[in-house]
Amino acid sequence: MRKSIALLVLIFALFASPARAQQQFKVLVAAIPNKYHNDYAVVAQPQFERLARKHDFGLTWAWNTSAFDGDLSQYAAIVFLNTPGEELKGEQRQRLQAYVQAGGGVVAVHRALISSAGQWPWFERLIGRPFRIHPMVQTAVVQVEDRGFPATFGLPDRWLWTDEWYEFGPDLTPELRTVLQVDESTYDPTRIWPGQVAKGMGKFHPIAWYHAYDGGRVFVTALGHTPELYNDTHYLEHLYGGLYWAATGRGIVAETPPR
């Protein structure tokens, strides 16, 4: 009996190891706690691990920036999950730039979109649109703008969602391709804390987009403020669709004009 069990274990080890080595690609997720986003990662991490198992990709989870001291070329995509580029310092920034210039993919989620103007211009252009302000968390209707991009494949045309609705200034990078926008008629863009002013962006209010940048691929989504959102199936499909494209360059079914 013991010999049979040992044989089964050996067979499993022989066949399981190559299977793990044949994962589609590897992804680095930087999820560094910060002042306003320090509890999302305990919910997001197990969901990303489930996505990795479901879609057969390797996952490295980083709670600090030490991963950027090593070889980034092993990763098909790097996710800045509520983690701004300003967390990187010195040579870490140079490594990220070299990684993108070599064709690497980047996914920027929510807080990653906020940078101090002029602090790292290259990363600001990577994001593509400068953060301006956001009103209080509210429920609103999200509209799909580009049905041909993978980050929208699992979403309804109009999607009821509760989040911080970031506002943005003029584009920093040409040919940004918007995939989602929020309908400002479905929430109050002026509902904000005393002493602050938010006016909204009007009829065109982008909240997710993608573009080619400096040799690499970048997918950006402003969605993802509260921890509970990382348990939502639609949101996870949105994230993986953008991640899949950033990692592989595949999945777009029709070209759309930039907007």
Rank of each mutant, 00 (worst) to 15 (best):
S116M: 13
A76L: 08
V182A: 03
E124C: 10
V79F: 05
Q74S: 05
P156Y: 05
L72S: 12
P150H: 10
V107F: 15
G128D: 06
Q143D: 08
D163V: 09
Q119D: 09
G90N: 13
D188V: 01
S73C: 09
T162P: 12
Y166D: 01
F123A: 03
V79A: 02
Y187G: 01
E86L: 14
V79M: 06
V179C: 09
L81R: 01
E86V: 11
F168T: 10
W120E: 03
Y187R: 07
K89T: 10
G103N: 11
A76H: 11
E145V: 14
V137S: 07
R95D: 04
L96E: 00
W159H: 14
Y99L: 07
Q97R: 15
R95W: 03
V137W: 08
R125H: 05
R111Q: 10
V106I: 13
A117D: 12
S115A: 11
E145S: 12
E167V: 08
S116K: 14
G70L: 15
Q94T: 06
S185T: 08
P170N: 10
I192C: 07
T152S: 05
E86M: 12
E86Y: 13
R191M: 11
V144E: 07
R177H: 10
G169V: 12
L81C: 04
G104R: 00
Q94G: 12
E91H: 06
P174G: 11
A76G: 13
H134R: 13
Q94C: 15
D171I: 12
D183P: 04
P189R: 13
S115Q: 05
G169K: 05
E86K: 12
V107L: 15
G103Q: 07
F131W: 13
A76Y: 10
L126W: 01
A98S: 10
A151H: 02
G169T: 09
Q97W: 01
P121Y: 05
E184M: 03
I114T: 06
P130I: 11
T83G: 08
Q138I: 13
R129E: 15
P174V: 14
G90I: 06
Q101G: 06
K89F: 12
D188A: 06
D163H: 09
Q97Y: 03
L126C: 04
P170F: 14
S116Y: 10
G154S: 15
V144T: 09
G169W: 04
V179D: 01
